[in-house]
Simulated scan of single mutants.
Amino acid sequence: MERLPSWIRQHLAALRALLVLTLVTGAIYPLLVTGVAQAVMNGNANGSLLRESGKDVGSALIGQSFTDGDGNPLKKYFQSRPSAGGYDPLASGASNLGPQDVLDTLPVPGAKDDEGNPDTGRQSLLTQVCARSTAVGALEGVSGARPYCTGDGVGAVLKVFPAVGTPTRVVSVNQACPATPFIPAYQGVKVECGKPGEDYAAGRTVPVRGNARAVVPPDAVTASGSGLDPHISVAYAELQAPRVARERGLDVHRVRTLIAEHTTGRALGFMGEPGVNVLELNLDLDRLKG
């Protein structure tokens, strides 16, 4: 029998390889891995879903909010770490704002964006942290003050003019007029409040640390890289314990015992910090009184 031309043989060999690899990698291997996962770690393989009263209430691997319809924290529940993506698995990700992001864009009263919505401005990462710290402090009955934050919960940042040389004008750029600047003067120059819409780019940026000592833990005011972190630090959980105990009429020691029961150690014994799974903790709290 006459042999097929070499180019046809090469194409047939490539086609056979494609079919074999498709079968192995596209069917046999996935089915094998799925079968082993279902047999060995059924719960984890199916998303670590948690059920209550016969309904799925969430995943132990994904954080969620515990707020009312207006976004206010439900006081009887432990609150999760902030999320840049709204705890949406499809929007998982960080804010991509870095430590140099300290200047707000103040909303201009009466102005509208390109879609006709009221101008809301833009909060810097620093102001987001300051605002969260103030809110957590008010919720937990502790000081929400922290370095580089003003008393009204925005970034304590000045713009100094000229950028080089002796200052002649100083503006607290994140405090919109008629707010009272967080310090009255800088190097002998009276500090002004920020005017929405005014361009302060030519000035020198001066963040002011102040003397505040942070009581609110860092994970209470910063979002995780995924925006879906189901854990909070032990320090943040301990901060919330008195409020949760008071709202539920429980002994605070009982609540702290539950915190300890839901605290996981460092990964592999040495990576990261211990964490508290918020959803599992809140579910156990709900079960205490049926």
Rank of each mutant, 00 (worst) to 15 (best):
N277S: 01
A241N: 06
G26T: 06
N211S: 12
R248Q: 13
A145R: 10
R256A: 07
G225P: 01
E261Y: 03
G249A: 09
V102G: 07
A260L: 04
G227A: 05
A60L: 09
V20C: 10
P178I: 11
V171L: 09
V189D: 01
V157F: 02
D152L: 08
L258G: 07
G54V: 11
S80I: 04
L126Y: 00
L74I: 15
L97P: 00
G249V: 05
P118A: 15
G210R: 06
D251H: 08
C130L: 02
L258T: 04
G165N: 02
T166Q: 03
D119T: 13
G93Y: 04
G290Q: 12
G203S: 11
Y87F: 08
L106K: 03
Q79A: 00
A185L: 10
D101Y: 03
G63L: 10
G265S: 14
A14K: 05
A202H: 05
A185W: 02
G43L: 13
L103G: 10
Q79L: 10
G227H: 08
Y200W: 11
R51I: 11
L158N: 02
P82W: 00
V221R: 05
V20D: 10
Q64T: 13
P30K: 01
S83M: 04
Q64M: 13
Y87T: 01
G194F: 00
P99S: 14
E2K: 14
A135C: 02
S133C: 06
T67C: 14
D251E: 11
G227N: 03
D88Q: 15
L74F: 12
S95K: 09
R254A: 15
S83K: 03
P230Y: 03
L19M: 11
R9N: 11
T168A: 12
Q240E: 13
T257M: 11
T264Y: 00
D88W: 03
V36I: 15
I8N: 04
A237R: 02
A237K: 06
T180D: 07
N46A: 10
A138I: 14
N117Q: 08
K159E: 08
A223I: 03
T134C: 00
G35V: 04
A176D: 01
A91I: 10
L61E: 11
N277Q: 09
V160C: 01
K75I: 12
V20K: 02
L97S: 07
K75Y: 07
E115D: 15
S48D: 03
E261W: 10
I28Q: 00
P178G: 09
Q79W: 02
F78K: 02
K112D: 07
N42H: 14
G98Y: 13
L90Q: 08
L50H: 02
G227T: 05
G35H: 04
L125W: 07
S6V: 13
G47C: 01
Y200E: 09
V171C: 04
L4T: 14
L125Y: 12
T67F: 12
D219K: 00
L90C: 06
S172R: 02
A214G: 15
Y186K: 08
G43P: 04
G116Q: 08
E115C: 06
L74S: 07
G137D: 06
L12A: 14
D113H: 06
V136G: 00
V170A: 03
L12P: 02
P162Y: 09
A145I: 03
A84Q: 01
G71L: 11
V108W: 00
A131D: 12
I183N: 10
E261P: 05
K75T: 15
N282Y: 05
G85A: 13
R3N: 12
A111N: 09
A39W: 09
E115Q: 14
